[in-house]
Design a protein around this nucleic acid. Sequence first.
DNA 1: CGAATGTGCACAATCGGTTGTGCAACATCT
DNA 2: AGATGTTGCACAACCGATTGTGCACATTCG
Lengths: 338, 338
Amino acid sequence: MVSDSSAKRLTIYDLARLAETSPSTVSAVLNGTWQRRRISKKLANKILSIAQSEGYSANMQARALRRERSGIIGMVLPLYDNRYFSSIAQHFESEARRRGLFAIVACTNRDPAQEREAARMMLAYRVECLVSTGATDPDTISAMCDESGVASINLDLPGGKAPSIISNNREGAQKLTHAILDQLASQAPSDDTILFIGGRAEDHNTRERIAGFTQARTERGLTTSEADIIPCDYAADKAQVALEAYMRHRTTLPSAMFVNSTISLEGIVRWLQQGGYQLDDMIVGCFDWDPLAAAFHPHLIMARQNVGEMIDRVFGVMDTPSPDASLLIEVQPDIMGG
Amino acid sequence: MVSDSSAKRLTIYDLARLAETSPSTVSAVLNGTWQRRRISKKLANKILSIAQSEGYSANMQARALRRERSGIIGMVLPLYDNRYFSSIAQHFESEARRRGLFAIVACTNRDPAQEREAARMMLAYRVECLVSTGATDPDTISAMCDESGVASINLDLPGGKAPSIISNNREGAQKLTHAILDQLASQAPSDDTILFIGGRAEDHNTRERIAGFTQARTERGLTTSEADIIPCDYAADKAQVALEAYMRHRTTLPSAMFVNSTISLEGIVRWLQQGGYQLDDMIVGCFDWDPLAAAFHPHLIMARQNVGEMIDRVFGVMDTPSPDASLLIEVQPDIMGG
DNA sequence: CGAATGTGCACAATCGGTTGTGCAACATCT
DNA sequence: AGATGTTGCACAACCGATTGTGCACATTCG
């Protein structure tokens, strides 16, 4: 092609020389402000065609520096390899692209220090908005953003210093619990204990889900024992160990389970396998959705969080001039399977 | 905090004023070149402490512009929501961070146009290196990078214009097939047909896997019929439809299957469920790994691609001054389960 | 005591765009 | 013909860092 080995990239100065005009004119033509600057259509076309044929592409760093707008939006995410979060990343990115923005996503392993570090990097790259997804410490991130004059939004977990978009965890859990109880009722079970397992007692979502779970049981005239609620963290291993411990005091499986994430589900299933049980020996509801799990076990009831709508709401808030930091938008999850 | 509502961010000029020194000195101190520039330790400390207490963070756009190095590396990825690719993204990002680089990942839905568009954006942001993962058209991306003088590396699928790091698909498939045949042998099956299903006939990996599959069968003295190899694309629906069609000519399930990805596996399992079959009615090997699937079906044999090592190799190539474009590094996958 | 060397820092150009402003050249009106 | 307005563009000052260079002052040496 045109490029020689030295591969110096073309600048507007090069184009100006080629088109026998000035850099400012080239700039105006290439960023679309040429009509406002009364550049003739003829010259504009000439510049455009030269830029095209030479394969010019603007240096975004220079543009960002001068405009004081980077065109970048950032997201911190606990992890990628889970269908919920990866779907969030994917939607975020494609919507950003649709808007001519560049999305950068960093995953921070549910570690507050990594969250802060990632936020610091993103702010250094002058992101225009930072979305903290499932952050353990969203308020610190919001505070960092505030100091830099950058908008921040919480997703999945609410925070007090920025608008939050979350699933309606309480109502989702309530519906999921009712679905479990419906299935249970159709089987004339020996008892109606449901083991709630997984998640973190400190985190908002888990607390809400426990509340929804308890509420649904109350609505059915059932009481709920503290001992049947085990927020043992999300990790598969933790769930497996917790179930192991729980079962030491029982001779039979509980008739149903409310598993607080697909990650925890992994641990549950491993324990069941080891004990020679099958998932279908129980009624199982899971708060989160995984298509492979759905394929394997059509009876598995899953609460699928509405990622598409959540991301739409995120961008909706981004478009709001100065959103209220206490804004809390709740999106209904869907109950799948069963 | 210090920041007022106008929230103008501090620059080295502000720090220079605060420290009663010059911007160039501030710059040298903050980027660690101050010893070389013979700045006194005393002044350096003063500047550092002011920067610290004022929460200064350098403007990366300005730095990138001047240094002609962005500190950004890019990756294009077919999709996030699959354990293999999400794991790739996660490893890529954390290794980048470890090296003080900023990783940006774009997912492009196995669509050549989106791949080009993402590459164009990344080049506009002056990435220092671009990794095309599983790209349908890696050579075009490499060509674009070449024109901009940017290094490119292919991952997962090989290309001709940049070094490639891929799984050893042939050998992996061969081992996976042997594992399937071993399990089959232990069950005195009625026939030793293995249905190979999923993937794209055009893509290198699928071709290699078919070759490894066939080779393993040959080594066992088995012939392989063309009719039992169905590269129907990866999508779950395609696999489901293809299996449906295949089974119209049969009365019984094949005794074993080689499924070419977890995504295809999803379609297979759905078809089995619909027909009242179970996964354990067959010996199933899957080229790719999913922990939830492994938990559900311990007998499922899976080839787990060695993502950690692949990413290490990617960065290894990145460190190589001028790597050979024809370099092809193959990483062994592991056989799990069974 | 003057020359040579070293120390500590500031100046100013530069990276590649963006944008406020100014000024010719030409057209229009009185 | 001169005043006024319009069209079409170029100039130059930024944005915030980096870095080659130069210069004042202090120290050491012959």
